[in-house]
Design a protein around this nucleic acid. Structure first.
Lengths: 356, 356
DNA sequence: TTATGGAACTTGAACGTTACAGAACAAGTG
DNA sequence: CACTTGTTCTGTAACGTTCAAGTTCCATAA
């Protein structure tokens, strides 16, 4: 009836140690540092552990002691379905899992925190209680309060394609340059009226016409930077602001891209665009659909360039700006694990296919 | 120079407690159980905690004390890309994340454990060190050693669509019945030569003709059960074994389904199938492609039925057996969290569209 | 007045592990 | 022989939290 006769309780290192008359440390070493003891004793301990039903060093104690969780978190702000709808996002997610795979660490998908009504005792959310070594954010707005909450945890916080922020490590491609190259390409072909399909620049998402002002005040980085890239090329080519027509979509989906393109095409003749720059391949695909529906030939009557070089882009012959998701994921994971690599924005490449 | 002047070390409950002259427990309660102390003191503690830079109760201590990690693991046996290629699998994954979302718990994607060469000191893998409350396996073979390894951890282990096993909780649909209904449907239409596109029945995956024996010896459940469902209907309709032609694919992809169907079509006239039962919608889509390529009209010249009712099935008018991924995910998560719900195999439904 | 009961707080003990500093002993070196 | 070096093992102290079982105090009822 002593405490060690505790019936069903999980066996621990000390149980094994006691049953063999060796120290706890030695048993720990038998499992974690084979070089710290003789092979003979080690085998002895291992078999004995098996006998008494010890399951090996438990996670809880180790975590408390070492502080190393062996996992990093990825915050999922919306239903995963939405994310997977975007082929490029899905590709990035896969790359992230692969990067973790190689290092044998887990990737924890963190559900969105529910809206806080006030500053009442906030209920414990996964973001707060998860045992991870770092948190990665992907494609959320700079002013999302969840970011500060993660930073407060004291572990590294990585922002993918996000606006720089104190306490957060930024990883992303050089969107300005990528967009610049795309715009240059159509301008070089003589186009002077350009349509832009833009992604949301802030958390409030509605389908509408966009203005340069929207991009200035953006809280999401890459639509801002991509616009800046386009604008830079426009300026260099001497285009006026009236030469560009912008539509912003609520979500990155083919149907939204199609609908937004219809609006671009509705503009009367002189200002009607002859080229469309889409901020994603998904939107570009929508643009192609709209063109097809309206009997507009691509690329003869209309040039279309996407962004991302998503897997399907090659199949549909889409000219686009390529970014490397594996590289992005790899760097994100390395930085999450504390590696101090010095990186600028990752490079992009213009991939010329059939649509422009 | 005392230990509390430890400079940069993370603040803890005791630091706050000491600085206010209250007990550690009270500070803990201030964060976790507001009802255990007066509001006044609670506010006092909270503001003081802020002042001295305490970040709130840490994960490590809590985990050790409570044993509750607030996350469940999903073992990913192969690159995530492969999983996402299968639209139904992607749908299930999303459903799983959603189910976790609702309960504010994380879903940890666990990388595959590398092949063990011998029983040398096995390196610590994510599966061993991850702090989770349960492990879910999806679509792996019964004899995969990784299962036992998970069971040894002592937390609940859930197997989705897997063969029953000691120490593992099984969740899945009634594949036998679903397949039975599909087969019945084509048999009722008078078809007497049936082609079957089968998914792998064991870990070794190659494209080849399949025999009933393959299904008997299966280590993966649902191909086995689906075959049994088909076979049951065949027997009831008085079909001989020669009336069925089976092809097994190495992976669940459209191209493999297409290639396998080509082989089915290559069978000479009397034994050539007039209906194809595919064990997944993905394979069925491949079958449709092959038919189109060979100028075979569906459903007039060939009936095709899939399985899963993946999202795309509706778009292409595929007749298929529907299973509900949300329900499957929901039950998996509930059982993972220890809920003792009594469930049989989940029901399926035959969805008749254009292809049969 | 004396119970009775509850709210507000405290005490002390785990939870299971690993890091660190060192002890004991053997073996090689000059 | 004394001295170094190395291997093998031990003891102790955290790591930060929560839980069960108190104690104290005050209000209300008998």
């Amino acid at each position: 009836m002593g405490k060690q006769t505790n019936r069903q309780s999980r066996k621990r290192l000390s149980d094994v140690a006691q049953s063999l008359g060796v120290s706890i440390t030695t048993v720990s070493n038998a499992f974690n540092r084979p070089d710290q003891l003789s092979d003979k004793l080690r085998q002895h301990i291992l078999t004995r552990a098996e006998e008494i039903g010890y399951r090996g060093p438990g996670v809880e104690g180790r975590l408390l002691r070492t502080g190393h969780a062996g996992a990093i978190a990825l915050y999922i702000p919306e239903p995963l379905t939405y994310l997977l709808e975007d082929a490029f996002a899905a590709e990035f997610l896969s790359a992230l899992v692969d990067a973790c795979q190689q290092r044998q660490i887990g990737l924890l998908l963190l559900p969105a925190v529910p809206h806080e009504n006030s500053d009442k005792p906030r209920p414990p959310v996964a973001l707060d209680v998860a045992a991870v070594d770092a948190v990665i954010f992907y494609g959320i707005a700079k002013d999302d309060p969840v970011i500060q909450r993660a930073i407060d945890r004291g572990k590294p916080v990585i922002g993918i394609d996000m606006i720089d922020q104190d306490g957060m490590i930024s990883v992303g491609v050089d969107d300005v340059d990528g967009a610049y190259k795309a715009a240059q390409h159509v301008l070089a072909q003589g186009h002077r009226q350009i349509g832009v399909l833009a992604l949301p620049t802030s958390r409030q998402r509605i389908d509408r016409a966009a203005t340069p002002r929207d991009f200035e005040q953006a809280t999401i980085r890459f639509p801002q930077d991509r616009w800046n890239g386009y604008a830079k090329a426009f300026a260099e080519a001497g285009l006026e602001i009236e030469n560009a027509t912008m539509q912003m979509v609520a979500t990155n989906s083919v149907s939204k891209g199609c609908a937004a393109t219809e609006k671009l095409l509705a503009v009367p003749a002189p200002k009607r665009p002859t080229a469309i720059l889409a901020m994603s391949d998904v939107l570009a695909q929508g643009a192609l659909q709209a063109c097809a529906a309206n009997g507009i030939e691509v690329p003869t009557d209309m040039a279309v360039i996407g962004f991302d070089n998503a897997p399907f882009a090659a199949n549909i012959g889409l000219t686009t700006v390529s970014q490397n998701p594996s590289e992005k994921a790899e760097i994100a994971v390395r930085r999450a694990l504390g590696e101090e690599i010095h990186t600028q924005r990752l490079p992009t490449k213009l991939v010329i296919r059939k649509t422009a």
